[in-house]
């Protein structure tokens, strides 16, 4: 059994479950759109926000909305014990992490697209001068956030306060990613803001760290 095939099976599992009952997507997309709307009110319906501010608002919403949905699939794992069934399988347990990471990133990207649409409509940011970079920021942001959120969700899955603890652990750990994607988005909107390369490196480096480190400790996290 190659790890790659196990990965595909596990990915298929999450996508199938989410397609049948899109709880992650529904929860985080609706909450995210609501957040964009409330932010618009909080900023007194400002017509033109500076590019830095408006991109910060977008990512704050995406990060916060992701923490709302991230426990949905852990819940499915625990409900009938399916997650333990997967742990029994002759599969390297880091594969379980990677499959969940990719599926969570896909769902974050999907709900992030909905939030970005609401954000364009309601907060009226300038159209991206560099659409490719904007798309990269969204994609890489979803991937990095998916990784750290999956890891934190695994840590807090057995705590009494997991709904509170997840954002509390996630935000400090994700600061490098957060700064990176906010700066990249701002740059995509307003190219005079400069220095995108540093932030591309920062975001990619963060994703690389997420590739390596959970692989080292995930096995221990999953065992009772």
């Amino acid at each position: 059994m190659t790890g790659w095939r196990a990965f595909l099976h596990l990915l298929w599992r999450d996508v199938r479950i989410e397609a049948r009952r899109p709880q992650f997507f529904a929860a985080s997309a609706s909450f995210g759109v609501l957040l964009v709307f409330v932010t618009g009110i909080a900023l007194d319906a400002a017509e033109h926000l500076p590019a830095e501010w408006v991109s910060g608002v977008l990512w704050l919403d995406i990060f916060y909305a992701a923490t709302v949905g991230v426990h949905r699939h852990d819940f499915k794992d625990q409900e009938w014990g399916g997650g333990e069934g997967v742990l029994l399988a002759p599969v390297d347990r880091s594969m379980i992490f990677y499959a969940r990471w990719v599926s969570v990133s896909l769902f974050i990207a999907a709900s992030g697209l909905v939030m970005a649409a609401a954000w364009f409509l309601l907060l009226n940011p300038p159209p991206p001068a560099q659409p490719g970079l904007f798309a990269f920021a969204l994609g890489a942001g979803a991937l990095g956030l998916g990784g750290v959120a999956t890891f934190v969700a695994a840590l807090t899955a057995h705590t009494r306060l997991r709904d509170v603890l997840t954002p509390l652990l996630l935000f400090p750990l994700a600061i490098p990613l957060f700064i990176g994607v906010v700066r990249l988005t701002a740059y995509a909107l307003e190219p005079t803001l400069g220095h995108p390369r540093v932030w591309v490196a920062d975001v990619l480096g963060y994703i690389a760290a997420m590739l390596v480190v959970p692989w080292l400790v995930y096995e221990w996290v999953m065992e009772g």
Partner: peptide, 20 residues
């Protein structure tokens, strides 16, 4: 076990945070 896993990730994250 779980808090050890977190402590490791958190400490490795510190230089990355500082750089960013």
């Amino acid at each position: 076990k779980i808090s050890a896993a977190y402590a490791i990730i958190a400490f490795i994250d510190v230089p990355i945070i500082h750089m960013s």
